[in-house]
């Protein structure tokens, strides 16, 4: 469905994309990951034909360079933040539906499925609507004409948790044969949507695989926090460090944490039970996507350099 060969893009002296070769099959659910400035948005803009690039890029059999309009007919797009269009919601929906050649009724029904009734909200000016509502509108518009490809550029980045959950739920409506490419910083989004992950780094695709493979590549990236009675803490730490072979670190007095591989969490807890150390509580803390990527890419772990949450 998407076929890129030696895709490259240079801004001044900075080569943002440096030879991307890629095939996405119909129906694939792909997450596009990368540190800040890795070129995710640039790649999406190339896919939409909004900027010129080197190499060849075909979507649904059409050449993006020469046949941008037909490509965009087949591609739905949801940006990170919905612009505040002039006019009311109903006008905006009608205008973009007609522009995309979508059935206006179908879009309205889809909006209803997403929990947004045009009959109720249609007369409201777009600028009075919440970000969550707008993203749903854009999603409905993007899907309206049964597109072949859905491009999502960090669509939940500016949403509160509830709106984010609703948006991700809405993504389940996507037809099976539609190829979805989601650029995201959020592990939860990626896990909810994608079964294939692409990591952009240095202008190239540095990783192409499943989530598990990414975890494996990144190694111990999850933090397991364990709370034990204070008297047992030092014993517990020694015990755990012998299993995971990494130093534990202490936080807020009674709990301590260790970095563990995704599948080694059970081992840690088993060790403690064997030693009759009472585990009062435990929880895991997912790493930020940034630290996961840093791990996978072999970069020094530095959460501040990663694309963390922006909220």
């Amino acid at each position: 469905m998407i076929r890129a060969r030696d895709l490259a893009k240079q801004f001044g002296h900075h080569r943002v994309l440096d030879g991307i070769t890629l095939d996405l099959a119909p129906g694939e659910r792909v997450a596009l990951l990368g540190l800040n400035g890795a070129g995710k948005t640039t790649l999406i803009r190339c896919l939409l034909g909004l900027i010129p690039f080197e190499g060849t890029l075909q979507i649904a059999g059409c050449n993006v360079h020469t046949d941008g309009r037909r490509v965009r007919e087949r591609v739905g797009y949801v940006p990170q933040r919905a612009p505040h269009f002039d006019g009311t919601l109903a006008e905006t929906v009608e205008f973009f539906s007609r522009l995309r050649g979508s059935d206006h009724g179908a879009v309205a029904r889809r909006l209803l499925d997403l929990g947004l009734d045009l009959a109720v909200h249609g007369a409201k000016p777009v600028r009075t609507l919440s970000g969550g509502m707008l993203q749903k509108v854009l999603l409905a518009l993007a899907l309206g004409s049964d597109v072949s490809v859905l491009l999502l550029d960090e669509p939940t980045a500016n949403l509160d948790p509830r709106a984010r959950r609703e948006f991700l739920r809405g993504l389940r409506q996507v037809r099976e044969e539609t190829t979805v490419l989601l650029a995201s910083h959020r592990l939860a989004d990626v896990e909810a949507v994608a079964d294939r992950l692409l990591v952009l780094h240095g202008g190239r695709i540095a990783f192409d695989g499943t989530m598990d493979e990414l975890w494996a590549r990144a190694g111990a990236a999850e933090t397991l926090w364990v709370r034990v009675p204070p008297a047992m803490r030092d014993a517990a730490r020694a015990r755990v460090e012998s299993v995971v072979h990494t130093p534990a670190f202490v936080s807020n007095g009674t709990a301590f944490g260790v970095r563990v591989a995704h599948d080694a969490r059970a081992d840690v807890l088993a060790t403690l039970r064997e030693a009759d150390i009472r585990v009062e509580d435990f929880w895991t803390e997912s790493p930020s996507l940034g630290s996961l990527l840093s791990g996978a890419l072999g970069l020094p772990i530095d959460d501040s350099s990663a694309a963390g949450d922006r909220e």
């Binding site: 909004l50 037909r70 007919e73 797009y77 919905a82 612009p83 522009l99 995309r100 050649g101």
Partner: peptide
């Protein structure tokens, strides 16, 4: 940008 991402030139 959103407008240009639609099937228009």
């Amino acid at each position: 940008e959103y407008l240009l991402a639609q099937p228009v030139t």
